[in-house]
Nucleic acid binder design. Structure first.
Length: 570
RNA sequence: CGGGAUGUAGCCUAGUGGCUAAGGCGCCAGUUUUGGGAACUGGAGACCGAAGGUUCGAGUCCUUCUAUCCCGACCA
């Protein structure tokens, strides 16, 4: 491709709204344009990279027996009602009506459609296993889209779904996809970690996320410094042993007037005590039922763990009115003692490490002191509902947990029969008996992967593409366009490289050298071949490696072989 | 959804209530220039996010709306 004919434009200045490296650089390099919040145009430069990502994905999936399909973006509400998600998916699901007033949504994911597709074809165990995938545009109406393609509303996703005859086989399919994903991100030369993950709205009971490590990642990961344990902060478990409360320190429960003292900070100031000596009572609506979560004042509630523990579809904070009706008090005075109605109470296991706490009295402007978790209330459940922390012991070995930030670019779920049973996706087994297909689902955020690659690989000059997903692998940059030998040589190199199947960008623009060098670094061509008159007279050109900044002089006649070798290492 | 901020040309910015809204980048034409974002000359491009209001007079003040961004909550 010649620059003079290529549809692109680079920018020196950073647009006000771009905050994060991938967003700034993709904008400056002329890869994307924003059309609306979280909705972007992909220009040729971006699409080239996306296509390469897609190609790698297709190759690795096809190699493992997956088959590509293409499903509609617009989906009828009936299917979502069958799975129950029309109700539970919430505002993220973009819903609309057609002219006949029928309900539709723009697909945020395709479990319903694929299960419907599969049940129409599947009749015998002989057809299984099967794994179907598509690469397609999704829409999720994010509350707060941000960081360009990192969290867009419309985005490109590869989603795959496996169907198996039983759990054991389904777990084999899961493992195969886990391997496929590792292979995919390895081929892209990205630094990533597969981590244990919470399952969220998609459901199911086993899941791994593939996290590309980057400072700007939205997710926190805890990873053992000794063994392979690695989990999303929402799921991570501390291996620290629980202490036993010192029963000699028990005190009597007594009501204390605490006028207008509501928050943990206010309480700890009022009682002149550490937040760990306070019990925090948080009231949730879990699948519309009230749930009290109890934890120590210095801990944060891990809502993903609560949701997972209770096997719930949704968890939200109760509003003030609900809190008032449950506790009989204003917000800020909730506690587990003397509740006037039966509610589920989930107690964090850490609260049993001590006694003599302060907790709410379910009476406006009053708290209890001397609260003893073992004596003063009966929990419905005791569970770990806090976050593990950096420096905690690993739950699997004697190592220590370290913290990383990551960008979730892929996730694999073992779904079981969640959708297939609700939607009656069955087949006949060996004995002629109907069985429910066991499913898994697997996603890769294609557009997000592109952004993540940039987040992980850039410097102050621009993008540093891994060669496998770079829009172009090589840029040929003639310096003196008024010098015939330079022009001829660069043309020759361009043609020869292109002929061997390398993606070459020929910067034939009549610009000064510095301008072209800066553009080349910004766009991030992994290899830059600089053709200047002085070296060419000696039969050489300069080859610059974007990643290291290293410059080599290479004989013109060897340029094709040398470039090919270089690219393999990038 | 709560809190904060911002909308002036394709991009980045300036602009005490006062006449024709200013500059840089980019763009077009020309001349020179060609190893790290060139110089000069000439040119095109904005009814200042929208609607009301205050005022002799509004880009500037007020109200509402809208869009966008940031923090939080929420989320794959």
């Amino acid at each position: 491709m010649k620059a003079s004919k290529f549809f692109f434009k680079t920018y020196k200045e950073i647009p006000k709204e771009a905050q994060t490296p991938s967003h700034i650089l993709m904008h400056r390099a002329g890869m994307i344009q924003k059309l609306a919040s979280g909705i972007y145009n992909y220009l040729p430069l971006a699409l080239r990279s996306l296509k390469k990502i897609e190609k790698i994905i297709r190759e690795e999936l096809d190699k493992r027996g997956c088959q590509e399909v293409l499903m509609p973006a617009v989906q009828p509400a009936e299917l979502w009602e069958e799975s129950g998600r029309w109700k539970y998916y919430g505002h993220e699901l973009l819903r609309f009506k057609d002219r006949k007033n029928s309900d539709y949504c723009f697909g945020p994911t395709h479990e319903e459609v694929i299960t419907d597709m599969a049940r129409k074809i599947l009749s015998s165990y002989k057809q299984l296993p099967i794994n179907l995938y598509q690469i397609q545009t999704k829409f999720r109406d994010e509350i707060r889209p941000r960081f360009g393609l990192m969290r867009g509303r419309e985005f490109i996703m590869k989603d795959a779904y496996s169907f198996d005859i039983n759990e054991e086989e389904a777990k084999k399919s899961y493992k195969l996809m886990y391997e496929a994903y590792s292979a995919i991100f390895n081929r892209m030369n990205l630094k990533f970690k597969p981590v244990d993950a919470a399952t969220g709205a998609i459901g199911g009971d086993m899941s791994h996320e593939f996290q590309v490590l980057a400072e700007t990642g939205e997710d926190e990961i805890l990873s053992c410094n000794k063994c392979s344990y690695c989990a999303n902060i929402e799921k991570a478990v501390s291996g620290n042993e629980l202490k036993k409360a010192d029963s000699s320190k028990k005190k009597e429960l007594s009501e204390v007037s605490t006028p207008n003292v509501k928050t943990i900070d206010e309480l700890s100031a009022f009682f002149k005590t550490d937040p760990s000596r306070l019990i925090k009572t948080i009231i949730y609506l879990v699948d519309d039922n009230p749930v009290l979560a109890l934890l120590r004042g210095n801990e944060e509630a891990n809502e993903a763990k609560i949701q997972a523990f209770l096997g719930a579809n949704s968890i939200i904070h109760a509003d003030d009115a609900a809190i008032k009706s449950i506790t009989g008090a204003e917000v800020g005075f909730a506690g587990p003692v003397k509740l006037n109605q039966k509610v589920t109470i989930i107690a964090d296991s850490h609260i049993y490490e001590d006694t003599d706490y302060v907790c709410g009295a379910n009476k406006t402007d009053y708290h209890f002191t001397g609260f003893d978790p073992e004596r003063d209330f009966t929990p419905s459940h005791i569970a770990d509902i806090t976050f593990a922390k950096e420096g905690n012991k690993c739950p699997k070995c004697d190592g220590i947990l370290e913290k990383y930030r990551g960008i979730e670019v892929g996730q694999v779920f073992y779904l079981g029969t969640k959708y297939s049973s609700l939607m009656n996706c069955t087949f006949l087994d060996n004995d002629g008996k109907a069985q429910i297909a066991v499913m898994g689902c697997y996603g890769v955020g294609v557009s997000r992967t592109m952004a993540a690659a940039i987040e992980q690989n850039h410097d102050e000059h621009g993008i540093i593409w891994p060669a496998a997903i770079a829009p172009f692998e090589v840029a040929v940059i003639p310096i003196q366009l008024n010098n015939e030998i330079v022009v001829e040589t660069s043309e020759k190199i361009y043609k020869n490289l292109t002929a061997t199947g390398i993606d070459v960008f020929m910067d034939d623009r009549n610009e000064r050298p510095g301008f072209k060098f800066n553009d080349a670094d910004l766009i991030g061509f992994p290899v830059q071949i600089i053709c200047g008159s002085k070296l060419i007279e000696n039969g050489k050109v300069e080859v610059k490696i974007r990643k290291t900044g290293e410059k080599r002089e290479i004989d013109i006649e060897n340029i094709v072989t040398a470039t090919k070798e270089l690219l393999l290492s990038l």
